[in-house]
Design a protein around this nucleic acid. Structure first.
Lengths: 233, 233
DNA sequence: ATTATATACTGGTATAGACCACGTTGCAAG
DNA sequence: CTTGCAACGTGGTCTATACCAGTATATAAT
């Protein structure tokens, strides 16, 4: 085990909570007690607790103790987590239909956003997303071909994020998102079962890997009447 | 000076950076040097640095040193900062016209969002916001009367956030924001110089004080063609 | 001049102890 | 029984020291 001790302790406490040793609202042992249990100094133990507090898993109260926090479902719009999780978090059954799925040359805009070199190709797919079988959004995703090289179609369409992490050890980092409003075109209106000109919430998102390379450019059009982003700050 | 030493050092370093002692990209003295300068232990000095790193003001690199970071203009949408700052950050000249300004009984929705008791009154004001004299948004702000008690109209309309901080020592905490899309009504279209049915980006925001009390409920309608939110995660 | 290698310096981790302000709890005084 | 206060436990802050792993730089060997 090469990682720092406080990370190891962080993981052990996290696992203990997930295993149900302590439930939401429970007080965990004091820093001094835990320091003895793990056989480390209190400062090191505090570092482990600190990381858990930053993750929102624990809460500290002076004079009272440290408690298991009730995981706020914040960052609903983080976008670094996908549509599937978003729908499930809202209690809706997610599904989707892939409209197209092709390898092609990128548009100028795509090449710029994804920082592509001349001649690089991309995978472009269009999808309609549903929540409880009601159309929620129409999205166009563009991914550099080198990112999805060797992956099967289901591996890409089902959960790209998980596949990238498990199969290629590529970990998503930050994302840039742009939100605007527009009206539905004839084609989009048909996919989303609305009228032409109806309100559309547009989200353009560029996702980057931890090393800063862009790996996905997604343009999503949400039905204004059926979707809303919630942000907490 | 009652605050912890590491907070004091945090503030001193921050002021030094703002004063231009070190510029973006500059290396600041090592932790060991600064610890001697401030006459504290290295651990305490590290705590001060840590808070500055978390604020995005400094960056650390093992083996190289600690550097002044190039302040990312993230959280443009935080909303806890107002329209004025938003426009200035984008290089546009902000202005606004107050359409109405009345004390009245809250609607059911307002009373709920602001957690009002029966009989409580509110200040409701409608405003059109401009960037470089082009209409950008129409907003309706509702504020509990007790929050703005004793404040003049300009103090409320010009910069409510600054006034609350300086005059009443009330500090904004978090905010909840909901983003959706819709179409412009006849009345709104007129204010915003667009056509009825044109795309509107809707933002509903509830702002809370640090103690958790809601103090402002704002509904804003942005012209879809002229405005876009940018988020970084 | 180029390439290894050693050295000095940086932030990262870890220890063991100390005092503080705050919240909780139980005991004593009313 | 209630109230007030003291003792105790908690997380928050701080010290002084040590070693580690990564980076940069000067030095030595080629």
């Amino acid at each position: 085990m090469g990682s720092p001790v406080y990370i190891q302790i962080h993981n052990e406490i996290k696992k203990a909570i997930e295993a149900g040793k302590w439930s939401v609202g429970d007080r965990i042992p004091s820093e001094r007690e835990l320091a003895v249990q793990f056989n480390v100094s209190r400062m090191t133990l505090r570092q482990a607790i600190q990381t858990l507090v930053e993750e929102g898993i624990l809460e500290r109260f002076v004079g009272s103790g440290t408690f298991v926090a009730n995981q706020k479902v914040q960052e609903k719009m983080s976008g670094v987590t996908g549509f599937t999780d978003l729908m499930l978090a809202q209690g809706k059954q997610p599904s989707s239909k892939t409209v197209s799925y092709h390898v092609m040359s990128p548009s100028l805009s795509e090449a710029e956003k994804l920082q592509l070199k001349d001649g690089d190709e991309v995978l472009r797919m269009e999808r309609v997303r549903y929540g409880d079988d009601i159309p929620i959004s129409f999205e166009v995703a563009t991914i550099p071909i080198e990112i999805v090289d060797g992956l099967s179609k289901p591996e890409v369409t089902d959960s790209l994020y998980r596949t990238l992490e498990t199969k290629k050890n590529l970990i998503p980092g930050h994302a840039k998102q742009m939100v605007s409003a527009s009206s539905a075109s004839e084609r989009i209106a048909e996919f989303l079962a609305i009228k032409r000109g109806d309100a559309i919430l547009r989200l353009r998102q560029i996702s980057y890997l931890q090393d800063g390379r862009p790996f996905e450019y997604v343009r999503t059009q949400y039905v204004g009447e059926r979707f809303e982003f919630v942000l907490e700050k």
